[in-house]
Write a protein that binds this DNA or RNA. Structure first.
Lengths: 218, 218
DNA sequence: TTCCCCGGTTCTGTATACAGAATCGGGGCT
DNA sequence: AGCCCCGATTCTGTATACAGAACCGGGGAA
């Protein structure tokens, strides 16, 4: 694997996990030293992260980790809604029902997981669902766009400590989506995705508002 | 302006205009020499083009200009349909009717342009419409995705010598879209965009089929 | 005190040097 | 003749060197 790829993945992981928080200045020399590569591959990694929106190179000389604001989160949610609703329609049209029938059942049983407090397993199930949707559309460029926007919102969501009640509803929303895709019902799949995303947005924005209130005290 | 940016724009322009045809090998040394820059900024340009899908680095050692096939065109159209339909809904919701009211009238008059054979002016009008939609959504990340996918399909369309009849229908389809946005009718805007894109896809695929028949003769 | 100017410093952006991997061609074997 | 192997070559990927631009601090003037 190339050094530039390693640097890219390391930095992307650090940004998504908030080890590099929004606004952190990204000095090429310092990062290159820390990651054990020279500035050349490091710059390639930064350039790619800038194209994908995780790094902001427009302000001043040094790049910084891009901001997570209400405005940016709303923007990415609009983009995600556009992509995921259409992806759900495509998946329903592709009529690959078996995978989503299975997922529907597992989301149905997921309330049990949540009662048992096994939140990690539930997140793994969601990841599996996301992956299934990306595979179902059979469209690399589409899947790449989906992946990028999901990553942005995963970063934002990492602040939001999902409560049990929200996760329970999330499971039921996902079950509905899976059933619609299984049954080839494009319209229902799209509106179920739309409803789910709007609920998720509300949750994240609530957490963001709390953070902002804490960080800018009167 | 940075040398890497100049190289990026030059290469992107060459690829979109078919001066660099699909499949052309992109030797770093040769390109750097031709563009008058060193390999470092040229590599940055190639990396960015690869992220955006205009260059394929997965095959062998040297990068090549990415292919334009029926498969890839269908894929980008699915992605574009997802983005443009949602963008049209957002534009309708934003209720910035004046711009689109004006565009609707100009598309209405555009049949006159086409009768006069002034095709360039008509293409300029379409470009203005695309730009207006990108501005109306007030969402940089969304607009960037739109721009990339439009560029891919502009490249594919460059093969398709649009005939006058198709352009006349295109004008009427655009007028319908603009009116729907002007009136804040989200559902109509979305389906008008969808219908327009499907027609455009059909036209491009027909041209592609002709090309393939010519290039692989019996 | 506050603002502006300016030299010093640090960092980016670019060019170049170098090592290693992928490709190509020829020669030998089957 | 056809295929495979291997050396030569060419190209990429990375490291480093260097020039120039963006920042920082102090000193002077208002």
């Amino acid at each position: 694997m190339r050094a530039s790829d390693r640097a890219y993945e390391a930095l992307r992981g650090d940004i998504l996990a908030w080890r590099l928080r929004p606004g952190t200045p990204l000095s090429e020399i310092e990062l290159a030293e820390r990651l054990g590569v020279s500035r050349t591959p490091l710059r390639a990694a930064l350039a790619r992260l800038a194209v994908e929106g995780f790094v902001d190179t427009t302000r001043g000389r040094t790049a910084i980790v891009s901001d997570v604001s209400e405005h940016s989160v709303r923007g990415y949610f609009e983009l995600r809604e556009a992509l995921e609703t259409h992806a759900a329609k495509l998946a329903a049209r592709r009529r690959d029902g078996a995978v989503f029938a299975d997922l529907a059942e597992r989301f149905d049983r997921a309330t049990g997981l949540l009662d048992a407090g096994d939140i990690d397993s539930y997140y793994a199930l969601i990841a599996e669902f996301d992956q299934a949707l990306a595979v179902a559309i059979e469209n690399p460029a589409f899947a790449a766009s989906l992946d990028a926007v999901r990553a942005h919102l995963a970063r934002a969501r990492r602040m939001a400590a999902d409560n049990a009640e929200r996760l329970r509803r999330s499971a039921s929303e996902h079950r509905l989506i899976c059933e619609a895709i299984r049954d080839g019902d494009e319209a229902l799949a799209a509106s179920a995705v739309s409803a789910h995303l709007r609920h998720a947005l509300t949750t994240i924005l609530a957490t963001l508002a709390v953070r902002d209130r804490q960080e800018t005290p009167a």
